[in-house]
Design a protein around this nucleic acid. Structure first.
Lengths: 331, 331
DNA sequence: CGTCCGACGTTATACGTATTACTAGATGGG
DNA sequence: CCCATCTAGTAATACGTATAACGTCGGACG
């Protein structure tokens, strides 16, 4: 009771294995009669034939499979990137396998061995720092997500207009009268975060006082970092710009714990527009990032590169969504 | 400039391809001299040799790859299940590829074709209802997560002690004096949710009044459903038991919008203990589910089944975590 | 009437690996 | 001195598929 092969189908249909392959591969225009093609298909279904992917991949020398390298799937943003990439891939008969680069801990395993499959290409987020050097030495086509276009040898880049997002945030806060701003930045070293920091500093610099505090990307860490800031003596910031909704949620909690109202006493902005942004009270003013689109474009770019076509696209637009966590600066 | 094969390594090292395979496969104890083994390894690294996984899989007739079928990765619970499964898999030289069953929309694609790889087994969540029948007809070893052990032909089951979780919730609320309880249940039809509903009704039945409202698993849906309940005339519930932290977050928002304080006026409990549970204010009293353990056990079970060993384990324990969203029933 | 051609298939082969047999030389015991 | 045993490798093969190259058999056409 082993799995039927194309040869089994062939004998069942009374034809040769090659004919089976032609029919099932849809390459029989004018090479096989309609009648025998029907016989083959019938035999295949009654036997429950499924082609052996390993054999096919070996023969074709390509697996129609891409590796997506992300820092962690528990981050909703990357789960959505995967979703987008997988959708486009499916439309083209491709698959996507994940390599969630393990957080430093443990021996740095081989992303390619762990994929357990020959790969046609790689899509990597610049935030998956741990895995990037291991990927560098591979000869595979590479698409980078959210990374410095001048710094890597990737075949294509997919970037978000992060600086523009920061511009929208800044203008929003300035219009509300805020002049003392805290940047609650990510502790992760990554190009996307650097871009935001630079943009914020440049845009806000002439008009307002800016301070920066960094925290790991968890609610609890943001909470403690923010509590320290708010409890310190001296003039408090009236607005806090966060690199991530997760940080913003922590900032809001810290404010509440210290008896400050959001947004009456303190305005808070996030980034990403995760489900979290509308789960907390007040709902977060944040910058919506089209995460699925990032995945879609990444996969599209890889497909283009595999076809030998050049690929380039403008940065994906991002949009400030004003909700309830920002308001007029307190007098 | 094509990828080097084991034969290329062989000629570079001045040995036969078989020897290369033996050395690199660590099967050369007493069959190859230490010196030539060194030569082979050296040649392999200088050439940058990587074995062709497709060829290996074809030869071995096994891919050391499992398919994980889940409803959606954007649900943090399943992202964590994946993480756990992937960790155990990696420890055994296995890989995990995902099939996030698409939500009804679109043509029901073939999970196995989309996996783009030959598979050794399948781990499926009962919540991925859309894909389950497609999986049924495959001859692959199957491990079911959170499903009725009497209803499927799975080789192994991994379940959580959901009924016990509900017991803990119920006792906690009864001890706080609650006698009018609302069950905010998931609109998804799934065994795990049925189990909870039954347990809650049975445990609470004699001691308190119970009403049930169902809502899709989003904060917004829970919000509107809950608002309808709280705004309706008649006696309000004093506690709401939610099937999921997402629903609980929506319930809290609804309460707050209507001017009710949590937990002084209304107690709310969740389920899952997602990051969301500690991101909202007040932090949610909820039932912690060991999501990573579910993935780990699922993968361990599959590995055991593949070894021909029987596998069975008690339900994974779950723990009520009392935080700030529950309190004494109002007088 | 010879030949050419289209329709319908088949035969043979290669993809890169792991593994089973086999070989050739050296060593040692009786 | 001869056979058994061990060491250090090699030759050959199969996994299941896709496809290039090759028949074969009528009928049409010059």
């Amino acid at each position: 009771m082993t799995r039927p092969t194309s040869r089994d189908v062939a004998t069942a249909a009374g034809v040769s294995q090659a004919t089976v392959s032609l029919v099932l591969g849809d390459k029989w225009r004018g090479r096989v009669s309609e009648r025998t093609a029907g016989l083959v298909r019938e035999a295949a279904t009654t036997l429950g034939y499924r082609p052996n992917l390993a054999a096919r991949n070996l023969r074709l020398g390509s697996t129609r499979t891409a590796l997506l390298v992300v820092p962690a799937l528990t981050n909703e943003f990357f789960a959505r990137v995967y979703t987008g990439a997988a959708r486009i891939a499916a439309e083209h008969g491709f698959g996507v396998v994940l390599y969630p680069s393990p957080e430093g801990t443990g021996p740095a395993r081989d992303p390619f061995a762990s994929a357990r499959a020959a790969l046609d290409g790689v899509i990597a987020s610049s935030m998956a720092a741990h895995a990037l050097d291991a990927i560098g030495d591979a000869e595979l086509p590479l698409v980078m997500l959210d990374s410095d276009p001048t710094a890597t040898r990737a075949a294509a880049h997919v970037n978000l207009a992060m600086a523009d997002g920061m511009r929208q945030v800044t203008e929003h806060l300035l219009a509300l009268g805020h002049r003392r701003v805290l940047h609650l930045a990510s502790a992760v070293d990554s190009w996307t975060f650097d871009i935001r920091a630079e943009a914020l500093a440049a845009l806000l610099g002439p008009h307002a006082e800016l301070r920066t505090v960094r925290a790991p990307l968890t609610v609890a860490d943001a909470h403690t970092a923010m509590e320290a800031v708010l409890a310190a003596p001296g003039s408090r910031p009236t607005a806090v710009v966060c690199d991530d909704d997760i940080l913003a949620a922590g900032a809001c909690k810290a404010a509440r714990r210290l008896g400050l109202r959001v947004p009456e006493d303190l305005s808070v902005t996030g980034f990403d527009d995760l489900a979290l942004a509308t789960a907390v009270e007040p709902e977060l003013t944040t910058v919506h990032l089209p995460a699925e689109r990032v995945g879609e474009q990444g996969m599209s770019a890889l497909l283009a590169v595999l076809d030998g076509a050049p690929w380039t696209a403008p940065d994906l637009p991002v949009d400030l969504i004003v909700r309830a966590s920002t308001g007029l600066a307190p007098a």
